[in-house]
Design a protein around this nucleic acid. Structure first.
Length: 302
DNA sequence: CTGCCTTTGAAGTAG
DNA sequence: CTACTTCAAAGGCAG
């Protein structure tokens, strides 16, 4: 009932999109998962979906962290004029208060704090690299669309793209029922702004830093994310908003609750243990040791 | 094979 | 309402 109301509101929104300016958005009914779905202040509405991806973007200017002029992440207050925000909505402060935190992983000199912000690789005004995430292409997975490519959010429970071949061995009714249930494709959460940024930039970081460990790469990406200008971040927030909209359109009945508890739950004790150095990290070292000053990183920037 | 590591953000849950 | 938890991606690695 509640959901129907929400989806009706959503459909209404889809059929009668705001002419321009999020300030004119009708306040959606208790939003299911499109809270704060408006772009940050000053970000123009994108007209065809993701059109801006093929438009020209100047390469982000290199950022000198040593001057500590890093753009802070978007915050609720930044968007207050634009959004009807509730707790936990977009633009919230990072989980870690002590940002920027010292890296747990030793970064190579080429990926050090000063160095890892790339010098412009293209002439000013050169096109910004296109997003490659298939879900960012409108139409993929949209029913009736010629491409008819399944939306990447749909994956078998195994996480693999291919479904497992049917097991013909004899099974009890309960077993096969449970198995059938388990084999139902999982609809994944739509990617948030940072995840989209990671997806786009991962390969670049891997190439630059000759790293493969995702944990280390993600640390670098987290720092780069914070170093992005608000406008650059806004681009990804907008993309994420479109992602959520598309996701809602494709899977009207889906809720993040559906996947809750499907992964092995990480106990709080374990998490604290790891953050206090009780567990090995992706480098095979231990956080309390790895968190020690990294030789080739100037402490002034940490 | 499973889960951890690591990041941010969205959304769920609990009090 | 607030604080906390889970899950999205990624790939190496330990158990």
């Amino acid at each position: 009932m509640y959901k129907e109301t929400v989806y009706s509101a959503f459909n209404l929104l889809m059929h009668y999109p705001p002419a321009s300016g999020a300030g004119q958005h009708p306040q959606p009914q208790p939003p299911l998962h499109n809270k704060a779905s408006q772009p940050p202040h000053g970000v123009p509405q994108l007209s065809p979906l993701y059109e801006h991806l093929s438009s020209s973007h100047s390469t982000p200017a290199p950022v000198d962290i040593s001057q500590k002029q890093v753009h802070r992440p978007l915050q609720t207050s930044d968007l207050s004029g634009f959004y009807s925000l509730t707790s936990g909505s977009m633009g919230q402060l990072p989980h870690t208060v002590s940002w920027p935190s010292p890296p747990l992983y030793p970064l190579s000199p080429s990926c050090g704090y000063r160095q890892h912000f790339p010098a412009p690789t293209a002439a000013p005004g050169a096109p910004y690299p296109r997003f490659t995430h298939p879900s960012l292409m409108l139409g993929s997975g949209v029913p009736g669309h010629p491409a008819a490519i399944p939306h990447p959010a749909i994956v078998p429970p195994s996480g693999k793209q291919e479904l497992q071949p049917y097991d013909h061995s004899l099974k009890t009714q309960a077993e096969s029922k449970a198995e059938k249930e388990a084999k139902k494709p999982t609809i994944k959460k739509p990617l948030n702004a940072f995840m989209l940024y990671m997806k786009e930039m991962r390969a670049k970081v891997i190439a630059e830093c000759t790293l493969k460990e995702s944990a280390a790469i993600n640390q670098i990406l987290g720092r780069r994310w914070h170093a992005l200008s608000r406008e650059e971040q806004a681009k990804y927030y907008e993309l994420a908003r479109k992602e959520r909209q598309l996701h809602m359109q494709l899977y009207p009945g889906w809720s993040a609750r559906d996947n809750y508890g499907k992964k092995k739950r990480r106990s709080r004790e374990k998490h604290q243990e790891s953050t206090t150095g009780g567990k090995r990290n992706a480098f095979g070292t231990y956080p309390e040791k790895a968190a020690a000053p990294v030789p080739f990183l100037p402490m002034t920037v940490l």
